[in-house]
Simulated scan of single mutants.
Amino acid sequence: MTTTQDFGTYGVWRGVTGIDDAFAQATERLGFGALWVGGSPSGDLEAVERILDATETLTVATGIVNIWKDAATDVAASFRRIEERHPGRFVLGIGSGHREATPERVKPLSAMREYVSVLETEGLQKEQMLLAALGDKTLAFSAERTLGAHPYLTVPAHTAHARTVLGDALLAPELKVVVNADRDEARAIARSYLKGYFGLRNYVGALVRFGIDPDDIASGGSDAVIDKVAANPTAAAAVAGAREHLDAGADHVSLQVLGEDPIGSLEQIAEETGR
Score class of each variant (00 low, 15 high):
residue 32 F to R: 08
residue 32 F to P: 04
residue 32 F to E: 03
residue 33 G to Y: 11
residue 33 G to P: 09
residue 33 G to Q: 10
residue 34 A to I: 11
residue 34 A to E: 05
residue 35 L to V: 08
residue 35 L to T: 08
residue 35 L to S: 04
residue 36 W to I: 08
residue 36 W to H: 09
residue 36 W to V: 12
residue 36 W to E: 02
residue 36 W to C: 09
residue 37 V to L: 10
residue 37 V to N: 01
residue 37 V to P: 02
residue 38 G to F: 07
residue 38 G to C: 07
residue 39 G to M: 09
residue 39 G to W: 09
residue 40 S to W: 14
residue 40 S to E: 14
residue 40 S to C: 10
residue 41 P to C: 08
residue 42 S to D: 13
residue 42 S to I: 00
residue 42 S to W: 05
residue 43 G to S: 06
residue 43 G to Y: 09
residue 43 G to C: 07
residue 44 D to A: 09
residue 44 D to Q: 11
residue 44 D to S: 14
residue 44 D to Y: 10
residue 45 L to M: 15
residue 45 L to Q: 07
residue 46 E to N: 15
residue 46 E to F: 10
residue 47 A to C: 05
residue 47 A to N: 12
residue 47 A to K: 15
residue 48 V to T: 08
residue 48 V to M: 01
residue 49 E to M: 06
residue 50 R to E: 02
residue 50 R to Q: 13
residue 52 L to S: 02
residue 52 L to R: 02
residue 52 L to V: 04
residue 54 A to L: 09
residue 54 A to R: 10
residue 54 A to N: 05
residue 55 T to Y: 04
residue 56 E to Q: 14
residue 56 E to Y: 07
residue 56 E to L: 06
residue 57 T to L: 02
residue 58 L to A: 07
residue 58 L to D: 04
residue 58 L to H: 07
residue 59 T to H: 05
residue 59 T to P: 00
residue 59 T to G: 00
residue 60 V to N: 02
residue 60 V to A: 06
residue 61 A to W: 03
residue 61 A to P: 00
residue 61 A to E: 04
residue 62 T to M: 06
residue 63 G to S: 14
residue 63 G to T: 07
residue 64 I to T: 15
residue 64 I to M: 14
residue 65 V to S: 05
residue 65 V to Y: 11
residue 66 N to A: 06
residue 66 N to G: 07
residue 67 I to R: 06
residue 67 I to D: 02
residue 67 I to Y: 09
residue 68 W to P: 01
residue 68 W to R: 09
residue 69 K to E: 12
residue 69 K to V: 04
residue 69 K to D: 13
residue 70 D to N: 13
residue 70 D to I: 03
residue 70 D to G: 02
residue 71 A to L: 12
residue 71 A to Q: 14
residue 71 A to R: 15
residue 72 A to R: 10
residue 73 T to H: 14
residue 73 T to I: 12
residue 73 T to C: 01
residue 74 D to K: 12
residue 75 V to Y: 06
residue 75 V to E: 01
residue 75 V to P: 03
